[in-house]
Design a binder for these strands. Sequence first.
DNA 1: TATAAAACTGTAATCATTACAATTTTATAA
DNA 2: TTATAAAATTGTAATGATTACAGTTTTATA
Lengths: 134, 134
Amino acid sequence: MENTSELLRQHDIKPSFTRVMIFDYLKENLNHPTVDEIFQALQTSLPTLSKTTVYNTLDLFIDKHLVQPLLMNQQKHYDLITDPHAHFKCERCDTIFDLDVKPPKLDKSTAANYHVYGTQLIYRGVCEKCQKHG
Amino acid sequence: MENTSELLRQHDIKPSFTRVMIFDYLKENLNHPTVDEIFQALQTSLPTLSKTTVYNTLDLFIDKHLVQPLLMNQQKHYDLITDPHAHFKCERCDTIFDLDVKPPKLDKSTAANYHVYGTQLIYRGVCEKCQKHG
DNA sequence: TATAAAACTGTAATCATTACAATTTTATAA
DNA sequence: TTATAAAATTGTAATGATTACAGTTTTATA
Ligand SMILES: [Mn+2]
Ligand SMILES: [Mn+2]
Ligand SMILES: [Zn+2]
Ligand SMILES: [Zn+2]
C-alpha cells in the first residue's frame, strides 16, 4: 500500500483532500469508471463535491500521466496507469475488460519523430455474455 | 483499383450512389477524416447530401466491419479497414498519424471468451512539429 | 401502375464535456 | 495573528458532436 499524497507530490500535484480521494477511488476501482460513477461514489464522503472538480482532477491526472482516458462512444472511462495491459471493448454492452497482454513498444526508428507518453491496445468485439444473449 | 459497388455488396450493403461516394472518399482519404470533413468534401458532388446520411452510412460501414472509428476527444475519425497498422495521436494538435506497426493478435486462450472484430493500437504523445513549436 | 420497402433529408433533442465567474480554501508575508 | 495573493473548488450556463425522429424521396416488387 503506497502513500497517495507522496505519489501525487512526486508528480507535481498538490495532494488536496479531494484529489487524494479521487485518486484512491481509481486505485481501488480499476474497472474503468466514468465521471458519473466516480462522482456518485464519492458524494457520500465528499458531500460538497462538484462534478466539474472530478473532470478537472481527472484532466490533471491525465496531464501528469497518472491516468489514461479510455474513449468510448458515450463517455470517457478512466484507468489508473499501472502495469501495461490491453483492453477488450464489448460493442454490445460497452464494458471494458482488462486483458493480460502487453502493448508492443515502438522501436527507435519508428518513434524517432514522436514523444510517446502512453500506449493503448484495444480489441473490439462482443463479449461472451452478449454473444449468448443475442 | 477495386470495384466499390461489388465490395459493398459482398458486405451486405446495397451500393447506393451516396454510399459509394462516401466509401470512395474514405478510400482516397486515409488520413482519418471526421464527419464534417467528409460532409464538406462531398457537398459539391452531392449537393443534397445530409450530414445525418454521412453519420448513418459510416455507422453502417462500421457495423459491416469496413470502417474503424477512431475516437478522439472532440469527434470521431474514420479509417477504412485495410492493412493492419497502428496510430499515433498527437495530444497537442489532435492529428492521427499512421504507424507501420501491426497490432498483436490475441492468442486463443486469451481470446477464448471474446469474439474479436478488430484491433486498435494507439500511441499517445506529442508529434515532432508540436514539440518544436511548444 | 400501384404498393411497399429502403434510403435519404432536415430539424429538434440529447447529453457529456467545457467555459467561466463566484466562492472557498490554502499559502505567504507583513 | 492578520492581510493579501494564489490555488482549489463550486455551480450554472454554453457548447457541440451525435442521435432521434418524422417527413420525403427513391428504389424495388407485384
Ligand atoms: Mn484497464
Ligand atoms: Mn490509419
Ligand atoms: Zn458485452
Ligand atoms: Zn502535434
